[in-house]
Amino acid sequence: MDILLDNPIASMYGPYFLIFYGFVIFFSVIALATAKNQVDKTDKLALPPVPQQVDPYEIAYLRGGINEVARSVVFSLMQKGFIEIKTSGTDSEIIRINNENFDSLTEIEKNALNWFHSNRKPVELFASYGLVETLERYGQMYQARLESQQMLTNDDLRSSFKPWKLTVYLIILGLCLYKLLAALVNGNFNVIFLIIFGFVGILIAGSVGKLPRLTKLGKQYLERLQLAFDSLKTKAANPLLNQSSPTSQTAFAGVDPMLLSVGIFGGAILAGTAYDSYNQAFKTANAQTATGGCGSACGSSCSSGSSCSSGDGGSSCGGGCGGCGGGCS
């Protein structure tokens, strides 16, 4: 028992222990970050080729989760003439248009269109009973497919990383509790800094120990798609392609280049184009949703994807919850 309370750590002078403890936290967190990098070995896998038939919604899901799918579907419905966005000042409203040409819609678009039985605010898309919830089963499908392709972090990856995380938590928390106990037994009650150090250490470890939504393979694949389809950004700004004539656009190699560009790069690509109202509406929705308390949970999924760094103004995910909510769980 003596050795437990009479050893260099237990009897270390408080400020010196805090310095020592700070180093322990620092190196534990470094080790955790290294382990996080090492545990994801998907970068050793062969990168899938760029498909000729690209599903813009799947790419949107890969980039930012179900919220990005919802945004892309809204864009497609708007482009095909089923809904329009009316903007007045900072207020936007999505209005359904009478259009019976349902054959031009895919299954996911038909489901989404049913949700627009009345006028909607863009922010409602992401609220309870919103479009995002309506499209959840598509999200589950994309999630399962992308996880099986090891593009998204799956349970196997999480469980192989878990021991590292627990070990670091144990070290930070264990040392804090032990020193706390030793201090109290020895009659030292000025332990507030020790508690603060422990608390901050756990917070940092928790943040560093969060696996990104996209695996290395997923990130590389998304970057590859963004490189392959980079010239779509120019197309989006091309007045010939911006006229609201859905037929001329949907007939292109089976994939709509505008929808594909929204799927791959996000709605911010439409800034300054004929579809600027879409971009403006979702910018506002992002701001409103963000103040609604999505909080920091979005940060990790956005930072894991390269879409944020594509230089499109950030609303593809930087706008907050709207762009990553689906992947925050």
Binding site: V50, Q52, A228, S231, A253, V255, P257
Partner: peptide, 13 residues
């Protein structure tokens, strides 16, 4: 040529 890039990938066949 760079402006063709996306179109080329969409028409690989």
């Amino acid at each position: 040529r760079e402006p063709f890039r996306a179109d080329i990938f969409l028409n690989q066949d």
